[in-house]
């Protein structure tokens, strides 16, 4: 009975959603009423090239036009890490000791030791070149966290220093907020650009955008490594 009711509800929701998107159409240019009003997209794309000198438009939107959103997002991520730690808290008898079913073979351990620097280097490359090519702070941070995950899975006594994670994360957060506040000192708004923008498609271009994205990369990497480490150290009542 409940299933029928749910299916009926979902059919109604699905029908109206599908109808709405059918009216919008797939792959068309946005509909504009008069020639005086430009879509937001055109303004952003124009300013990205002309004023900010950033090659990747998604980066310029995430860091500059919607930079305040990104600050909020990083805060939400920080809050979720805090919530995870406090929900899973218990008075542990063996701190830092993980339950493993069987230890990894020597092929896995030496292979992951070989791969780990390469993964971290790839992550750093991705967030340093965030304003030139696809990628950025979030992607690079996640890639670095994946490298730490590999090490944590391969070595059963590999541990990440919580104090180090906290320091990296706080410094990155302070850099983000501080660079944003420096915009006020130059008579502008929060996250206003105050450095020279350089030329398009140059590594040192875009003013403060690469600095902020590097800070975001470090912050995301530290936070996600903290999430994985906390959950991996969770030890249920084991039965095998």
């Amino acid at each position: 009975m409940k299933k029928i009711l749910v299916l009926l509800l979902l059919a109604v929701v699905g029908f109206y959603t599908a109808e709405t998107f059918f009216d919008i159409g797939f792959g068309k240019a946005p509909f504009v009423k008069s020639s005086e009003i430009k879509p937001v997209k055109d303004v952003y794309l124009h300013q990205t090239v002309q004023e900010l000198k950033v090659a990747n438009a998604v980066t310029s939107i995430v860091v500059n036009f919607r930079g305040f959103d990104t600050l909020g997002e990083v805060t939400v991520l920080f809050l979720s890490v805090t919530a995870l730690g406090s929900i899973l808290y218990k008075k542990r008898h063996h701190v830092g000791e993980r339950s493993v079913l069987f230890s990894a073979s020597s092929i896995v351990t030496s292979g992951s030791k070989l791969l780990f620097p390469a993964i971290v280097l790839l992550g750093a490359y991705v967030f340093i070149h965030g304003h030139l090519s696809p990628g950025g702070g979030f992607q690079g941070g996640v890639i670095i966290a994946t490298g730490f995950l590999l090490m944590l899975l391969a070595y059963e006594n590999y541990s990440v220093s919580h104090k180090g994670l906290a320091i990296v994360e706080s410094l990155a957060g302070i850099t983000f907020a501080g660079v944003g506040l420096l915009g006020f000192m130059n008579g502008g708004t929060f996250l206003q650009n105050f450095l020279a923008t350089g030329t398009l498609n140059d590594l040192f271009s875009g003013g403060i955008i690469p600095i902020i994205y590097i800070a975001v990369g470090f912050k995301v990497a530290a936070e996600l490594t903290g999430v994985i480490y906390t959950v991996l150290n969770e030890k249920g009542e084991q039965h095998g």
């Binding site: 696809p134 992607q139 966290a145 994946t146 995950l149 999430v227 994985i228 991996l232 969770e234 249920g236």
Partner: peptide, 27 residues
């Protein structure tokens, strides 16, 4: 959308899956 593809590949495939697997092992 190459930016989104990179994010989804790293988060959706690696991190979400591993965190679910750890939860299943614990429960």
């Amino acid at each position: 959308a190459p930016d989104v593809a990179l994010t989804e590949a790293a988060i959706g495939v690696a991190l979400t899956t591993i965190i679910f697997v750890i939860t299943i092992r614990n429960t």
